[in-house]
């Protein structure tokens, strides 16, 4: 494994770990774990003591706030760690939808061919005929309440066509291989060939595609958040952090830089790991 892929994996591990840790902190441990509350305004009015907090908005890096504070004096580091959760969920849901629904559908139509294939691939082509982000925007605008469930469901459903196409292409290639012909010749039931021969061979390629698709999904969610059309505030996402901080770019560019770095490095890492797996599964495919 090349060094850059190792670094990329390490970064992705940190983001995922941070996101789960942050969720455990707010969900299970009621904020008792060592991570600041992402929505706590450090200069806010405290009802119990009757005084204002001592924090200041748009602070630079310090021991108390590792990456400084945002425009309303919330801890940027905590918000970035929490922001990973939204990206993580969206990626996981879209990959799950894509691999399970798209993967099965694509494998099936690539194996059985015929009219089913024509109909399903035609509908896939229609959805892919839209510019992805524009279709997503139009769909998202339908929902009045935009929470994590809605956003990840919409992105998940929109992920299915691309996966279907990839799965079908692989399924087509695999279905014409000797071992499938052999299985047919000894009288194996088609459903069994599909489950035991075709799908297991489609999956590795599809999973490596999922990594590359994940990079795209992170960008798409980031863009939605940036436009204010993803998960509603005050939930921290990298995109909405960037959008909020850019208003104060004349005062402090660092507050834009941190979430931008988090987003870009994550996308870069997903691309690296995805390319790596894609090359490996291509090698596996040719030796099959």
């Amino acid at each position: 494994m090349p060094l850059r892929v190792k670094f990329a994996s390490l970064w992705l591990f940190l983001i995922v770990f941070g996101a789960i840790y942050a969720k455990l902190d707010t969900g299970l441990f009621d904020g008792k774990l060592p991570l600041q509350n992402p929505n706590y305004q450090t200069n806010g009015f405290d009802v119990t003591t009757g005084t204002f907090g001592t924090g200041t908005p748009i602070e630079s890096m310090s021991g108390a706030h590792w990456l400084g504070t945002d425009a309303i004096a919330r801890d940027t580091f905590a918000r970035i760690v929490h922001g990973g959760w939204v990206s993580l969920i969206v990626v996981v849901v879209s990959a799950a939808c894509g691999v399970i629904v798209g993967g099965l559908l694509g494998s099936l139509v690539g194996f059985v061919r015929g009219r089913v294939e024509t109909v399903i691939m035609a509908s896939v082509d229609v959805i892919l005929a839209f510019p992805a982000l524009v279709l997503l925007l139009a769909l998202v605008s339908i929902f009045e309440v935009r929470n994590l469930f809605v956003i990840s469901a919409v992105i998940g459903v929109l992920s299915i066509p691309a996966y279907t196409r990839v799965a079908r292409a692989n399924s087509l290639a695999i279905s014409s291989r000797e071992f499938v012909t052999a299985a047919r010749a000894i009288g194996t039931k088609p459903s069994r060939i599909l489950m035991r021969e075709v799908i297991p061979n489609v999956m590795p390629t599809l999973l490596s595609y999922a990594m590359v698709a994940a990079a795209f999904v992170v960008v798409v969610e980031g863009s939605l958040s940036f436009l204010g059309l993803s998960v509603q505030l005050p939930t921290a996402t990298w995109g909405n952090m960037i959008n909020q901080a850019r208003r104060d770019i004349k005062i402090n560019v660092a507050q834009v830089l941190w979430p931008s770095l988090a987003l870009s490095v994550t996308v870069l890492s997903l691309n690296q790991v995805g390319d790596f797996f894609q090359q490996r599964s291509a090698v596996r495919g040719s030796s099959l």
């Binding site: 990079a215 960008v219 980031g222 863009s223 940036f226 960037i242 850019r246 770019i249 004349k250 560019v253 834009v256 931008s260 987003l263 870009s264 490095v265 996308v267 870069l268 691309n271 690296q272």
Partner: peptide, 22 residues
């Protein structure tokens, strides 16, 4: 090229604004 592929265009835009406008 790898880096350019990974930075979303709105982030590029913001930092262009920062450099050339601010």
């Amino acid at each position: 090229v790898q880096v350019a592929l990974s930075v979303p265009n709105f982030i590029v835009g913001i930092f262009l604004i920062w450099l050339f406008a601010v």
